[in-house]
């Protein structure tokens, strides 16, 4: 699989990454190299093999949906790292 500059740009767009022209040039061949390496998996016969979902055998771990109190200083510290806030809310630019 060879990725050209246009395709790298499309992926970066999906990943919400602003890339410089230089980065777009470099990543094409580097990503293509890794993709051609991982293509070898196509040769493995996986007929009737289930994909792995969990490795230690846990299934459907449940808990009650309850609000837990969090210490106030920790809440403040977490909210305080937002660039803009109003009271307990984080301010963002308009969405629509």
């Amino acid at each position: 699989m060879k990725l050209d500059k246009k395709e790298v740009k499309k992926i970066a767009n999906l990943a919400r990454l602003e890339l410089t022209d230089k980065e777009l040039e470099i990543y094409g061949p580097q990503l293509s190299d890794v993709l051609s390496y991982i293509d070898q998996l196509q040769e493995v016969d996986v007929t009737n093999i289930e994909p792995t979902a969990q490795v230690t055998g846990l299934e459907n771990v449940m808990r009650d949906d309850e609000v837990e109190e969090w210490p106030n200083d920790e809440v403040e510290s977490a909210l305080g790292q937002a660039p803009e806030r109003e009271g307990k809310y984080i301010k963002v630019k308009r969405v629509l």
């Binding site: 998996l41 196509q42 493995v44 996986v46 093999i49 792995t52």
Partner: peptide, 8 residues
Amino acid sequence: QAQKVRTK
């Protein structure tokens, strides 16, 4: 495919 090979 990777998750299936992982199972193997």
